[in-house]
């Protein structure tokens, strides 16, 4: 249950797009023992809509044993600071696989890129310029990368970042 509690805390933090409210004792420049104090672990799950006997639909996250166009995948990245020191300016960048598009109900505050990680912003502020010079608002299907930024990760802290995408 301890693990679950941590996940919940991390998800809450990421969905609010705010840094965890931990006190920071260690600052940049302090010596850290581990060579890779932060480890990332990726996973993917299928968000499957199932109906119970009364016809009520709900969503289960299952292993993606069978996936077809139109299905929703949840890409997750676990992070854990296994060192005894805090790390700062923690930024996780995730290129979207070409075969998926960002889910249309993605967090509007999620920082994304629609030009291959050259420029970043929330989707509402981004535009696409076509070959003939015409400009249009960027849409979820244009997103090439997503990015999360955490001010700091305390020693021993772990969390999970995730985005949802639809198979094109």
């Amino acid at each position: 249950m301890n693990t679950f509690a941590k996940f919940a805390a991390a998800l809450c933090a990421t969905s609010l797009f705010a840094a965890p409210a931990f006190a920071q004792d260690a600052g940049p420049g302090e010596t850290l023992g581990a060579t890779t104090p932060v480890e990332l672990s990726g996973d993917v799950l299928l968000a499957k809509t199932v109906s119970d006997a009364s016809g009520v639909e709900r969503i289960e996250l299952v292993e993606p044993d069978l996936i077809v166009p139109g299905d929703r995948l949840v890409f997750g990245t676990m992070y854990k600071n296994s060192s005894a020191e805090a790390v700062t300016n923690f930024t996780v960048t995730n290129p979207l696989p070409e075969a998926v598009r960002l889910a249309p109900d993605a967090d509007a505050e999620l920082v994304v890129s629609v030009d291959g990680a050259k420029t970043w912003g929330i989707l509402a502020n981004l535009t696409i310029v076509s070959a003939n010079g015409a400009e249009r608002s960027a849409i979820h299907a244009d997103v090439t990368h997503v990015r999360w930024t955490l001010d700091a990760i305390a020693p021993g802290e772990s969390g999970r970042l995730e985005y949802q995408a639809i198979i094109r």
């Binding site: 010596t31 990332l40 990726g42 890409f75 020191e85 790390v87 300016n89 930024t91 960048t93 696989p97």
Partner: peptide, 13 residues
Amino acid sequence: LIENTATATYDGG
């Protein structure tokens, strides 16, 4: 194939 990799950068010691 759908392949997903995340990359983190941060300031450490």
